[in-house]
Design a protein around this nucleic acid. Sequence first.
DNA 1: ACTGCAATCGTTATCGGTTACGTTTCCAGG
DNA 2: CCTGGAAACGTAACCGATAACGATTGCAGT
Lengths: 340, 340
Amino acid sequence: MIEVNAPVTMSDVARAAGVSTATVSRVVNGHYGVSARTVAQVRSAIEQLGYESSLVATSLRRSRTNVLGLVAHSFQSYTAEVLKGVMKALSRSGFDLIIYANSDLYGSYSEGWEQRHLTRLSGTLTDGCIVVTPWGDFRTRTPVVAIDPVRGSTAPSVISDNFAGATTAVQHLLGLGHRRIGFIAGRDSLASAWSREEGYRAALTTAGVPVDPTLIGRGDFNPESATPLARVLLQRPDPPSAIFAASDGMALKVLEVARELGFSVPGDLSVVGFDNIPESALTQPGLTTVDQSMYQLGYEAARMLKSLVTGEWDEPSQIVLPTSLVVRDSTAPPKSAAAA
Amino acid sequence: MIEVNAPVTMSDVARAAGVSTATVSRVVNGHYGVSARTVAQVRSAIEQLGYESSLVATSLRRSRTNVLGLVAHSFQSYTAEVLKGVMKALSRSGFDLIIYANSDLYGSYSEGWEQRHLTRLSGTLTDGCIVVTPWGDFRTRTPVVAIDPVRGSTAPSVISDNFAGATTAVQHLLGLGHRRIGFIAGRDSLASAWSREEGYRAALTTAGVPVDPTLIGRGDFNPESATPLARVLLQRPDPPSAIFAASDGMALKVLEVARELGFSVPGDLSVVGFDNIPESALTQPGLTTVDQSMYQLGYEAARMLKSLVTGEWDEPSQIVLPTSLVVRDSTAPPKSAAAA
DNA sequence: ACTGCAATCGTTATCGGTTACGTTTCCAGG
DNA sequence: CCTGGAAACGTAACCGATAACGATTGCAGT
């Protein structure tokens, strides 16, 4: 069913139609200055030869390509959610999407690949890019919108209200009666990680509970990073009665360690996550977590990029989306009401 | 944090290093014939200017780009699974991946976009493509591997053992005592849909149960297509005691209709799906289904494409992967043992 | 000193398409 | 019949990089 043809180029069409490539180009792009008869001839030649313009050649010459790019650092389930949102926003907008991923992502982590990808795409191929990866200092020719940017970035970006989400989560625990609440932080360089930690601290402080630095573990959003941290927290003589992890991936590892050490959840330990990834609903017990809509993040990022590219942007360049607490079965009042 | 620079080209580097672009190209590609001193100069210029080669220009000139393409017709959760498998197979292989998606996918369905995308990618940008979309007649310059190809396609492809999977599913229902088993078919043109129907028929026939054509609904894998079909089956005076849907998406719609019509599952009706998408584990009751590993499909497809591109392929060009039955809560023995 | 080969590097055609510019064609108006 | 101007179309430069090719230089062997 597959025919391997020599590629049909514009000059093939020109030869078949008896005109120059310039004329073919004008017909293809619907430009002014071609007689109706010639247009018909060229169209027929295109039809017959099955010509399709080359994205590469076009983008090399043209400034606008009507293609947007997306650079992601991995393909987790949340990346798929983001993609769905992006596709929805781009639906029938005239913009196509190119996602670029390199093969070194697994295993060794070569610093700076984001910039490399971005340059490769932004050179001429795309009119703008969405970046779903922790990186901040981009040199580009075209607009970039970051999803979950690095801390302090002033670049256009879309992010969830991580501070409010974290605050709500901790308030939920406080409301249940917890006072010793552990925290496992995310990658420090990310704005999201920082805000979640700030939210944790603010909720405690507001409630008059002093922040105990020894109850804070320094993770990096990588699920594996949480395992030893959870172990340290739970093997203390005075373990916390609840742990709030800055991501669901890490929270799930906390559940794992808790099970391993004989803690029953939520009996001996309450656990709260952040993100609401699909897996969180599947675990036993179901994970209480803060929902952030990756779909919405993708949608808004694409909408913003679209406007930036067409030059019709007027809203603030940093969009913050609301979060909401999803209470499942991993949280309950602490066993002893006398918890410090 | 974003600097919008004029793009740095090879000639900029050449000028800065006081050499020709040819020399820069040789240094960039590690070719033979440049003195150590010149290499150092060029490298330093590259470093200073932050030069990155343009993917577009390179691919236009070169035959090999070390980039593989993927064309998908939508971004469902299974697409993400395929992607994970693809990325794993490409991990540290030297091949990058470009995913091309167009914005017309939602809403109107423009016939032939797959070919358009494929041509645009295969022109010069990629060395080969993976196609995750029902289409069969591709004209390309470079190799194509299809995941779940159309019926009768002889193109290189990777597919699950749909026949065995369907047979097992129906045998499971037969084993529970069901005799009137409805079927909701998938898009007829797809090899997978056809095999699943064949498996359904074969299992019945082998068990000595005659195939009742009126119990077969003609869906198209689109979840929505199953709703009216399920309604027809369940509103008969003699509804089937079990329904096997050719995809989980459609099976979930069957569950919906069953609930709507007052059928209890699995009390009044057993339902089996195919695919094992994540949602199937989340419904109440959990959906019994046939698991096909989209991850594995992606992995094998990428492995195969890689070999095709490098010209070292020797295995058969159609890979069939095993499936397995996942029994959850949507299946049980029929209420009346006297079911026809 | 001369030859020959290899190393080194610049020049240029080329990839496929776009577009500024120049040329030709055609028709209306004088 | 001549002219002006717009419409129609071709020519060629160009985008950024690669690679075939030619030219130059260095150096070992004789």
